[in-house]
Design a protein around this nucleic acid. Sequence first.
DNA 1: CTGAATGAAAA
DNA 2: TTTTCATTCAG
Length: 452
Amino acid sequence: MPAARTKGTRRAGEDEPQIVWTVPLEPTSDVDDPATFMSPPPLDDDLPPLVDPGTVFLFAPTDECPPASRKSAHSKKKPDDHIPRPPNAFILFRSSFIKGNIVSNEVETNHSTLSKIIGMTWKNLPETERARWHAEAKWALKEHKRKFPQYAFRPNQARGKGSTAKRKVREVGPKDHKRCAKIAELLVEGKKGQELDQAIQEFDKHHVPEVVTRFEAPLTARMYRRSSSAPVPDVDDSSRAKKSRSASTQPPTPAISSAKAFPLSETKLEAPPAESFMSSFDQYTLSPAPPSFDFNTFSFDHPSSPFSVYQECDPLSQPASPMATGDILFNAAQSNHSNLTIDTSFMGLDDSWSCPSPLSSEGSMPATPSHMGSPSTAYTSYSIQDTLIKSFAGHFSAYPDSCESQFAGGVYEAESPPVYPTFEQDSCSRIHMANPDHTLSAFMASLGPEYL
DNA sequence: CTGAATGAAAA
DNA sequence: TTTTCATTCAG
């Protein structure tokens, strides 16, 4: 008896207008080559699976104007003027994930299970990539505050009141943890689209669903299917038939669906409709997808001026001669295989800056970033990332592309969309930046005209 | 309305 | 520390 969970009239936002967020982002070219993470320095061992060299921006946020009138579906019992909470990083990530149909309907449709998969994926996500979502959430929060200055989160205590601890103790749904983990693993490995589907189908062939029920009750195929849309092994032919029906009856899944959030090279060869490369949130639209860059080409160094630049064509070749910043920008914009590297050693950020990064939600020691070195190095890395992010954040206003956001039917001027500073520090204290072309102009602008 | 995830914010 | 509620939608 789920106790009185009535339509509790919440009193969150007393007089707020209903919000319908639509934040059409601006420019975004469909530059979506696979960006690459820095090849992680030799990692110790028990670290979360580092992504393969080729894998990367799993969920390049993209923009697109959602069919405005789509939301509002089931707002339930919320007062008409209810103001939803600002989304956190994970919620944003989840939204994007769902919207992008990363895991096809053939693989999983149950949202509880999807949440599980997404949660696992989230945890396996490279730190740099999660940082982008945190940045996004930060921005969303800022926007939320701007729009609803007097908003305050007021959780409804009345709801959980009655019985003390019944809130969290439910968990009854049989879930195939292994399968979820497998899917998450495939995702962070870069599997996507049909390739992903096939891999999972293959997995399902040999995998006997291990379902964990609260009371270890025997699991029937039917029960299993109730909470997971995973195909049932061989036990139940009828349910299998049911499952495959869609495959045979319906046309093959449109390939576009999964291409959205995985704008990797192979998916875009086909020159799909423009919108194919734009995924969006219903309410949240993200900044332009970070342009992809490899991490080999550019670097800032510190010899003389604030920054000096040289180009490194590949790990083997020694730094080429310094070149003008303008050239860098030019080349960076032209090359699909370039990244920026900033030597920060001169900034004196090395060991003295060991403070935990706000980017990691865990209060404890963050999982070591892609770096070996001394223990403090990890912290340093985070600190530098944070420093850079803040630094860039301070210059977002310089970013030429502001965007308009729609709100409650109206339109207001929003601050510049968040940029996704994706940094990695190498063993030489150099910061590698994944999306230089958006951040760089702002950053350089901040340095002064002489660097433009 | 619930579940399922993570996380921000409040009690 | 514990609880709500942000998203999403099948069940």
